[in-house]
């Protein structure tokens, strides 16, 4: 089931416009509110064998998709299409954060980021070999988590004092117990097999005030994928993700000790809720030095992540500048205090 969004004015294909947050027609400029967009204008085509092939309604060409694609554009006529059958039932996202950064803005921001690369090779900084920039809705699971934490620890308080010719060190030991409820809301975990987990984690945080109820027109003109892992399959990953947060919280409840030795941290994590959400990411593919580098940009905040190539000569220059500068500074202070020049 392929969904096209037709302009009620001129019949051309409409796309989601990140600036206005509306569907916009590129031919006549007409805009439609997503909440009120008339279903009449959504044309759906049914295929005999849906799982295998989709045909563009405009030009009849085969729309190239893989098993995970839920939205794409026709490679011939460019019409944004949504594969609605892959977004229904169990696969229906609950929420979406729409793109707020357009392709042009993303490109510009990326170029600026490249230019600021203090350790990247000169040729990379011009960003003139960007092969491809793709707006993509990446599937995430968001978890609301309730944690019941039981902590047993030994705390020490150390006091030193002087009496006569002796220094006394007094160590008091305490049995510390805590029973804590710690809740987290909407912790995201990337549910796509193709996306690098570390890269996606670094894209956070997203502004959750902009979470919208999912509607297919948000995807018009972008690539989108469906999840490869269920919320249960990723539960261990989200638990690992909040482990550091939990430790920080626990530490904040055990104050006033010189040292704390945890003997037991019983953490029971319960999933209160999980949502299937789509989060906006600009993927930038950059050919440099015969290698493809992949960068990701948060489609809402503009934060860019991904390892750019490292220029060793620049790193050496920075190092010698900083080390040399500090050496001169130390030496100057030492000479002012009366040290020798060498």
């Amino acid at each position: 089931m392929l969904v096209h969004y037709k302009c009620p004015n001129c019949g051309a294909d409409m796309k989601f416009d990140s600036a206005s947050g509306h569907l916009a027609c590129e031919s006549c400029g007409h805009e439609e509110h997503i909440d009120t967009f008339d279903d009449v204008n959504i044309t759906q085509s049914f295929e005999e064998d849906e799982a295998k092939e989709y045909h563009c309604e405009n030009c009849g060409a085969v729309v190239l998709t893989d098993a995970d694609t839920t939205a794409t554009s026709c490679s011939f006529c460019g019409a944004g299409v949504v594969l609605a059958d892959r977004l229904s039932g169990e696969l229906a996202p609950a929420k979406v954060i729409p793109f707020t950064i357009s392709k042009e803005e993303a490109m510009q921001a990326f170029k600026k980021w490249c230019k600021n690369g203090r350790l990247t090779p000169k040729g990379f900084m011009t960003a003139d070999r960007v092969k491809n920039i793709t707006g993509m809705y990446v599937p995430f699971w968001m978890y609301d988590l309730d944690n019941d934490v039981e902590v047993k620890a030994t705390g020490t308080k150390v006091r030193t004092y002087r009496r006569g010719d002796y220094r006394y060190t007094e160590t008091k030991y305490y049995r510390v117990r805590r029973d804590i409820d710690i809740s987290y809301l909407k912790v995201p975990v990337d549910a796509s097999e193709k996306m690098d987990d570390e890269l996606m984690d670094k894209l956070e945080p997203y502004d959750y005030n902009k979470l919208e109820g999912f509607k297919t027109p948000y995807l018009a003109g972008y690539l989108a994928e469906k999840y490869n892992y269920t919320d249960d399959e990723l539960f261990d990953r989200v638990k690992a993700k909040i482990r550091g947060f939990l430790d920080t919280y626990i530490g904040s409840t055990v104050r006033g000790y010189t040292s704390v030795n945890y003997e037991q941290k019983n953490i029971r994590t319960k999933k209160a809720k999980s949502y299937y959400v789509l989060l906006p990411v600009w993927m930038v593919y950059y050919d440099f030095d015969k290698q493809e580098h992949t960068f990701a940009m948060n489609g809402q905040s503009g934060k860019i992540v991904g390892k750019p190539p490292l220029s060793y000569s620049k790193a050496a220059l920075w190092f010698s500048g900083i080390a040399g500068g500090s050496f001169v500074l130390f030496k100057t202070i030492a000479i002012m205090l009366g040290g020798d020049i060498l």
């Binding site: 305490y174 117990r177 804590i180 409820d181």
Partner: peptide
């Protein structure tokens, strides 16, 4: 999120 119970017993 809150501490439900806490004890710090001198040993």
């Amino acid at each position: 999120s809150r501490v439900k119970s806490k004890s710090d017993r001198y040993l």
